[in-house]
Amino acid sequence: KLPPGWEKRMFRSNGTVYYFNHITNASQFERPSG
């Protein structure tokens, strides 16, 4: 389970998975720990 605010997303163009935090508007490719 991801830390609060984080969700898994995917770029439609190339299928790359990334993680987005809707609380802080942060995004990263590494899976957030917590």
Rank of each mutant, 00 (worst) to 15 (best):
V17N: 05
A26G: 07
A26Y: 05
S13D: 14
F20A: 05
G15S: 04
R9I: 07
S27Y: 15
T16E: 10
Y19E: 01
N21M: 04
F11M: 12
Y19W: 09
T24W: 05
E7M: 01
K8N: 01
N25E: 09
W6M: 01
R9M: 09
F29L: 11
S33P: 12
S13M: 05
F11K: 12
W6Y: 02
A26H: 10
E7A: 04
G15W: 01
S27P: 01
T16F: 08
G5D: 05
T24H: 02
P3D: 04
P4I: 08
I23D: 08
Y19I: 01
K8T: 09
N14E: 09
F29Y: 10
I23R: 05
Q28R: 02
R31Q: 08
P4Y: 12
M10Q: 12
N14R: 09
P3W: 01
Y19A: 00
R12P: 15
L2A: 01
Y19M: 02
S13N: 13
W6Q: 01
P32S: 01
Q28I: 05
P32W: 01
S13F: 12
V17F: 11
E7P: 01
K1A: 12
N25I: 05
N14H: 10
R31K: 10
V17H: 07
R31T: 08
E30V: 06
N25S: 08
G15F: 10
K1L: 13
T16K: 14
G5Y: 04
Y18K: 00
R31H: 12
Q28N: 03
N14M: 01
A26W: 06
K8V: 14
P3H: 02
G15H: 11
E7L: 05
A26L: 13
S27W: 15
P3L: 04
E7G: 07
P3I: 02
P32V: 01
R12Q: 14
F11Y: 14
F20W: 08
R9L: 05
G15K: 06
W6K: 02
P3T: 01
P3F: 00
N25H: 13
K8F: 11
P32M: 01
G15Q: 06
R9H: 08
F11H: 14
G15M: 13
S33A: 09
Y18S: 00
F11P: 03
V17K: 03
S13Q: 12
T24A: 02
R9A: 05
G34S: 11
N14L: 09
Y18I: 07
I23Q: 06
K8R: 12
K1P: 13
S33D: 11
F29M: 08
N14G: 09
P32F: 01
P4L: 07
E7Q: 09
Q28P: 05
F20N: 00
P4R: 07
S27D: 04
E30M: 05
T24E: 03
F20T: 03
S33I: 12
R31W: 13
N21F: 07
Y18L: 03
G5E: 05
S13I: 10
K1H: 13
L2Y: 04
G34K: 09
S13T: 14
S27I: 15
G15Y: 10
G15I: 07
F20M: 03
T16N: 10
T24F: 03
M10Y: 15
R31F: 15
S27R: 11
G5C: 10
M10W: 14
E7D: 03
V17P: 10
T24Y: 04
E30P: 10
S33F: 11
F29E: 03
Y19P: 01
P4D: 10
M10E: 14
K1Q: 13
Y19F: 07
P32H: 02
R31Y: 10
Q28T: 10
V17Y: 11
G15P: 00
L2I: 06
K8S: 05
T24M: 02
N25T: 07
R9Q: 05
F29R: 07
K1I: 11
H22A: 07
S33K: 10
R12N: 15
W6R: 00
M10S: 07
K8M: 14
E30T: 11
P4N: 11
F11N: 15
A26D: 09
F20L: 01
G34I: 12
Y19V: 00
W6S: 02
I23N: 08
S33V: 12
L2Q: 00
K1W: 12
R31M: 10
F11D: 15
F20K: 02
G5K: 01
I23V: 10
K1F: 09
N14S: 14
F11W: 11
S33T: 13
E30S: 06
R12H: 11
N14Q: 06
F29G: 05
A26Q: 15
N21L: 08
P4M: 08
N14Y: 09
S33R: 13
R9E: 08
P3G: 03
R31S: 07
P32E: 01
L2H: 01
T16R: 13
R9V: 07
G34A: 12
E7Y: 07
P32G: 05
H22K: 12
Y18M: 04
F20Q: 03
F29V: 09
P3Y: 01
H22P: 08
N21D: 04
E7V: 11
Y18N: 00
R31N: 07
N25K: 13
G5T: 00
F20S: 02
F11S: 13
A26V: 15
K1M: 11
S33N: 13
N14P: 03
P4F: 11
N25L: 12
S13Y: 10
T24L: 04
Y19K: 00
G34H: 12
Q28V: 06
K8I: 14
A26P: 02
P4A: 10
G5S: 02
F29Q: 09
F29W: 10
L2D: 15
W6E: 02
V17S: 04
F11Q: 10
R31D: 09
N21W: 07
V17E: 09
S33W: 10
E7I: 07
R12K: 14
F29N: 05
R12L: 15
F11L: 15
F11I: 13
G5A: 04
P4W: 10
K1Y: 11
P32Q: 00
L2T: 02
S27V: 15
E7K: 05
G15A: 06
E30G: 06
F29K: 08
N14D: 15
Q28M: 08
E7F: 05
N25R: 09
Y18P: 01
E30W: 07
G34Q: 10
Q28A: 07
G5I: 01
N21Q: 02
V17W: 09
N21P: 01
F11E: 13
M10T: 14
P3M: 00
Y19D: 02
I23W: 06
W6P: 00
H22N: 12
T24D: 05
F20D: 01
P3K: 02
P32D: 02
K8A: 10
G34P: 12
F20V: 10
Y19Q: 00
V17G: 04
S27Q: 09
G5W: 04
K8D: 07
F11G: 09
I23Y: 09
K8Y: 08
H22F: 13
R12E: 15
V17D: 02
Y18G: 03
